[in-house]
Structures are given as structure tokens and as C-alpha cells.
Design a protein around this nucleic acid. Structure first.
Lengths: 199, 199
DNA sequence: CGCATAGTTGACTACGCTCAACCCTGGTGG
DNA sequence: CCACCAGGGTTGAGCGTAGTCAACTATGCG
């Protein structure tokens, strides 16, 4: 969810919105807790993880500044993952009932919300398809093509390569090697914090 | 999108809905076509794929009976993937404008639609997290845990293992081996078209 | 009955993970 | 201003696991 829609929600809900500060490692909600709100990251990072019943197998997704999360919780009774602050963070709390009420009353707001949801759904599907590319080299190349601005051919590295590797589902070492390979092949060129696609 | 919401949409839109039959390999829409509708599979299977500009690197997702697709298209101007029938198929066409209009007019319909979107978004995120499990054995086990009915401990195999392997992002051979391994470990038991989780 | 496809098993290969050492940068404090 | 340190990034060596290719069996359908 981008800033725009979040701002719309803010102006609609106003005093219904609360804020909460979290220390590093603090848990915002547990798996199985009754859903009470949707959230947005004001600062910091929140990790979403889900645990199996037997093992403690962890699955995670990092929510970053300006992103909302737990939208699906609006339509479910319990959270199906845990939310933990990885660093000291601040979240905005959009309580479930007022939010649903606002969406019901304002078709335009509802439409914007839906558009955001659809867009993020689509983004996630793209990430999923990215994972089906086996070769690290090809996967990285595809990632760069996807994240480059449509007209431009450059990618600005906003996060550490470490985090990008995480998103890609490979190790930092593999990413480093893949980039080196692509560069040696002449497929990309690298400068400080920027990668440009060639040809 | 499940049948329920689709039925709601059907009864609302009625004569606005058209149907189209596709032969195997026939293309429903191209990447870059102007969006004109959302679709649902009445019979057959539709493959969604996206192509890079240079290579013909393919990414795909198979839409099966009863599922809708291209929901995000409602809020975008062009399709960002191609839709191809893998076998002879029939799709229902929900034209964009009438659908958006219906959602605007009927908050309850809009809410159901949103709930479905959120649910599928969440499902996709789970699949994504599944892909970050390296080990085939662990990934398969997790998949079984996720797809088993919450109370039950059995998984009915509705699709060929081949397709499940596809969803899991591994080869059929690897899936076969993983299942054999899990069975020999006593973690699962297999019967005809059913797998039960042990302990 | 025969064919096509799914599923299984085996042998080999290759690619990415692991562990480790090293370089480089930026930040901090003496 | 320099010394030190921490973290990100790169590179190397070895290993393990899933992919690939292939043969074979089982199943379902005409």
C-alpha cells in the first residue's frame, strides 16, 4: 500500500488511528491472536513469520517503511502469522471495525484500497514467479529487469545487497557472484549504488 | 476467488457477462493489451506467463477450474502477462466497467470481493515463503502441513503430483524422492490419492 | 489390447550453500 | 588526525543436494 492510499485512510479515520512504539524484538501480535487491526510501518522494520505446529520452521517477510500489512486480517478472525519488530519501530494502527465501516461508506476509498490490494497481490505473484527461475544468474537478471524503471535502464540499490539477496531467495555470496558474472559478460554495468542494464 | 463470490458477481452482472471458448494454445490476451475484463475459468486451464523484453524467459501460473484471474487488471490499463489456454477451455468474461460499477454500488459485494482478493494475496505470500525453504524434504513437508485441513491430518491429491511439484518449485523427480523419504522416515503415510501426516 | 501419460528409481552432474579469509568503507573515540 | 572496529561486500575451496537424462513400471483411456 503506498502513501497515497494510506493518507486517504488517515484522513478518513483520523482519531480512530492509534500509534505504537516497539522495541527491537518486541512482538506486535501472535499467530492465533484475534484480529483487531491493520497496520502500517511508520519507522523501522517489522518481520512477519509463521511457525509450524511441530517444528519451529520460520517463514518471514520484512515490511518496510510506508508499507501496510495484515490487510487480509480485516477479513479473518485470527492472525496467521506473528509480527515482530526487527529494529525499534513505530506502527500506525487502523482498527478493524472503523476501517471496514469507512470502506463500506465510501466507494471511492474502497476502490483505492482494492486497487492497492490488487497491485500488491500482483507484485507478490511476480516475486513468486521469480523464484521459479533456478539459475542465480538468470534470476538476478530478471529481478533487475523487473525493478528497473520501465523507461530507464538503471536500478538504484536502496537496500544492502544482503537484503536484496534475501528477497531473491539466494545467499549474498551467490548474488555477489551472479552480479560479477553478469558484469563480466557485459550484460550489466555497476557503479557505486547503481546498476545499469546493457543492450 | 471461490464460487460463492463469483456467483454473487454473476447474479449482479448477469447479461453483462460473456463467455468464450478457447482451443489448446489459443491466446486470451497478450501482454500489453488494454485491459477490458476480469475472467474466471469455467472449464480447462489457463496459463499466465510473462516474457522479458530480450529473452523469452517465461514465468507462469496455472489458473484452474473455478478460479478467477486478472483481478488486478481491473485497476490497470494494460495486461502485464499473457493468458494462454493449455487445454481446450471456457472462460467467463466480466467486463471491467460494469464490474467496477457494481462494486461501487454494492458495498457488500465490494467487501466480499476484497475479502477474496485479500485471501488470495495471503495464499500467494504463503507460497512465496514456501519457496524460501531450500530442502526439498522440508518444503514438501511444510506444504503438506499447510494444505492439510486444519483439524484433519490428511491431504487429498486433487492434482497430479507433477502439477504439485510445479507449485512447489521442484521437479517431479525431487518430489517423488522427497515423499519416499518422508514415508521411510515415518513422517507421512501414503495411500492411493491421499497422504496422511503422522505424529 | 495398446498407447500415452504419470510416477518411480538410478547414475551423473552442476550449481548454489557453507564456511572461511580477506578487502573496503564508514563511523567512533582517543 | 589517525587507530580501531563493525558490517557489508567479495572471493576461494569443498560439499551436498536437487536438476538432468534415462530406463522402467504403473495407471488410465481409447
Amino acid at each position: 500500500m503506498n502513501f497515497f492510499t494510506l493518507e486517504q485512510l488517515r484522513s478518513q479515520l483520523q482519531d480512530a488511528i492509534a500509534y505504537q512504539d516497539l522495541e527491537a524484538g518486541q512482538i506486535l501480535f501472535h499467530q492465533g491472536d484475534l484480529t483487531r487491526a491493520m497496520f502500517a510501518v511508520e519507522s523501522g522494520q517489522i518481520r512477519l513469520a509463521s511457525y509450524t505446529k511441530n517444528g519451529q520452521a520460520i517463514n518471514h517477510y520484512i515490511v518496510r517503511l510506508g508499507e501496510s500489512f495484515a490487510e487480509a486480517a480485516l477479513f479473518q478472525t485470527v492472525y496467521d502469522c506473528v509480527a515482530i519488530a526487527v529494529i525499534p519501530s513505530r506502527v500506525a494502527i487502523f482498527p478493524k471495525q472503523p476501517l471496514l465501516e469507512a470502506l463500506r461508506q465510501q466507494p471511492s476509498l474502497s476502490e483505492a484500497f482494492m486497487a492497492q490490494l490488487a497491485s500488491r497481490f500482483h507484485q507478490t505473484k511476480i516475486l513468486l514467479e521469480l523464484r521459479s527461475i533456478r539459475s542465480a544468474r538468470d534470476r538476478v537478471l530478471r529481478y533487475l529487469q523487473l525493478t528497473a524503471q520501465p523507461d530507464q535502464k538503471t536500478v538504484n540499490l536502496e537496500y544492502p545487497l544482503k537484503d536484496i539477496a534475501e528477497d531473491l531467495g539466494i545467499t549474498p555470496e551467490a548474488l555477489s557472484r551472479a552480479l560479477a558474472k553478469l558484469e563480466s559478460e557485459g550484460a550489466i554495468a555497476r557503479t557505486k549504488r547503481r546498476i545499469t542494464l546493457c543492450e
